[in-house]
Design a protein around this nucleic acid. Structure first.
Lengths: 118, 118
DNA sequence: GCTTCGTGCAACTATAGGGTTGCACTTGTA
DNA sequence: TACAAGTGCAACCCTATAGTTGCACGAAGC
């Protein structure tokens, strides 16, 4: 019940949740600058353990923001711009959608003053 | 130490954290469609208490995503597209930045094969 | 006046998740 | 082969925060 319309702000939940954590953002930053890096290397440059880094990388991977590829005994991670880009586009659309609606509401409020409920 | 460069992925932490929560996204959705709504009204359309809604609105407000204005005894909240739009732009920039770096790394890896460290 | 409605404040619960340590497994290298 | 380096798994701790309930306060409505 309630008109809900879930789907407007729902899709990129994983990406948003992934980006919400500062450590994860630092990881992305490092990955973006360094190219292909291993979890161990990343941990050396951060104030957290390797295991913490691994968990973060798992979250980022699930969100499609990074991907790892095995090379011998190590796993090299790299950044993936697609998911980020998609989320950015969605966000832009949403923002302009809000703008549109705000403008409409304003028009109604100023002029006609019709009933707006539901 | 470590080249860090914090500042690249740091600024919009509040917005990202705010958007990370599903309930908060629902709230934004409702606010976008309804225009100016009170916390009590919002709570009626969600499976959570009014107090929960109030807390979420506080977070969203701190992130600049909504703003409330008092009208008599009630406080009406509305969505603010600016912060969202700014974050979207930042995200787009970041994504293309990643793209650029990826391309560079690729070039180096393919051709010259020079030392990439630091 | 009294009542009702919406807000604001405070205390409290409980779960998610960011962090840790420890150990087993696998893959290069001396 | 023996050893080192990197990964993977599991059990934990602990804090942040999403959620709750209860009550007091101020502004409309009767």
């Amino acid at each position: 019940m309630t008109d809900e319309r879930r789907g407007t702000v729902e899709p990129m939940g994983d990406v948003l949740a992934a980006l919400a954590d500062p450590t994860r953002r630092q990881l992305l930053d490092l990955l973006a600058t360094q190219g292909e890096v291993t979890a161990t290397t990343l941990a050396e440059r951060l104030p957290v353990s390797r295991q913490a880094v691994v968990k973060h990388l798992a979250v980022l991977d699930a969100a499609g923001l990074v991907s790892g590829s095995r090379v011998g005994r190590e796993v090299r991670y790299a950044v993936r711009p697609e998911a980020l880009d998609e989320t950015a586009r969605w966000m832009t659309t949403l923002a302009s959608d809000w703008d549109r609606r705000l403008a409409t509401v304003k028009r109604i409020a100023e002029g006609v003053s019709r009933d707006v409920r539901q």
